[in-house]
């Protein structure tokens, strides 16, 4: 780590207009927005941006979305969960298209972030769209040299309602081809008939199977809906993990 503050945390937080280069559907309920942001100062895996929509009459609606792309990529990618009666997310997923502008500020946040220099092992636990900042961490990790990656093995445990609700499923399965990355899904509602994986909410037994033993002193990142995050964080501490190495981010259903 350098002694200087990264630009990502030291600059003033101003609104900028980013240019949309693509909007792609990830699952039935989520989409990813690919952006070109002029003068983007760079970000750290786990950070988010604030997005602002302004109506003709001046009414403003603002939401936070996690950054899905790793710091190494030229484009900034946000993944948005579409809430049916939301004010912002239906516009982002259904109306926004390439060449549109989108007002945003960021990157924001410094607590729920991970750089490969911080080391591991890495234990990532996601519920629903909480996988977004954790995917940025895995993608950031994948950019490191093989020798560095070998010293930072990673396990992801990801809880989704159905097989089709798993965001970045193909990408995660690609990342899991690295020998030092394990990706495990648990499906809490309808699973395919040939599904052999977990079929329940994340519990202590699952965290003991997928997680690292406390003696490995993993860095844990837990992100998802508040009940899942609080349950998982409590279980990890009960298992014996150091609370100071368990970082959490709660995602709310703000649309």
């Amino acid at each position: 780590m350098t002694a200087e503050l990264p630009a990502a945390t030291a600059s003033r937080l101003d609104w900028h207009v980013a240019s949309v280069t693509d909007v792609r559907r990830e699952t039935a309920r989520t989409c990813s927005i690919v952006l070109d942001v002029p003068q983007w100062p760079g970000h750290r895996a786990g950070q988010h941006v604030d997005v602002r929509l302004v109506a003709d009459d001046g009414y403003q609606a603002q939401r936070s979305y996690s950054i899905a792309s790793p710091p190494e990529d030229a484009s900034l990618v946000l993944t948005v969960e579409r809430i049916d009666d939301g004010e912002v997310s239906p516009y982002l997923c259904d109306v926004l298209q390439a060449h549109d502008g989108l007002e945003l500020r960021g990157p924001i946040g410094g607590y729920f972030v991970w750089d490969i220099a911080e080391g591991g092992p890495l234990l990532l636990v996601a519920g629903g769209s909480g996988v977004v900042p954790l995917a940025a961490m895995l993608r950031h990790r994948a950019h490191a040299a093989a020798s560095v990656r070998a010293s930072v093995p990673a396990h992801l445990l990801y809880s989704a309602r159905t097989w089709d609700d798993i965001i970045y499923r193909d990408d995660l399965e690609q990342l899991a081809k690295f020998s030092d990355v394990t990706v495990a899904f648990t499906i809490t509602r309808e699973a395919p008939s040939d599904w052999r994986g977990y079929r329940r909410r994340i519990d202590r037994a699952m965290l003991e199977e997928i997680g690292w033993p406390p003696s490995a002193t993993p860095r844990a990142y837990v992100c998802g809906p508040t009940p899942l995050v609080e349950s998982v964080a409590t279980l990890l501490v009960e298992i014996g993990h150091d609370p100071a190495r368990v970082r959490t981010e709660r995602f709310g259903p703000t649309g």
């Binding site: 937080l13 508040t226 959490t248």
Partner: peptide, 9 residues
């Protein structure tokens, strides 16, 4: 109920 991360902005 969220957490302080959501107040970062």
């Amino acid at each position: 109920r969220l957490d302080g991360n959501a107040a970062a902005g």
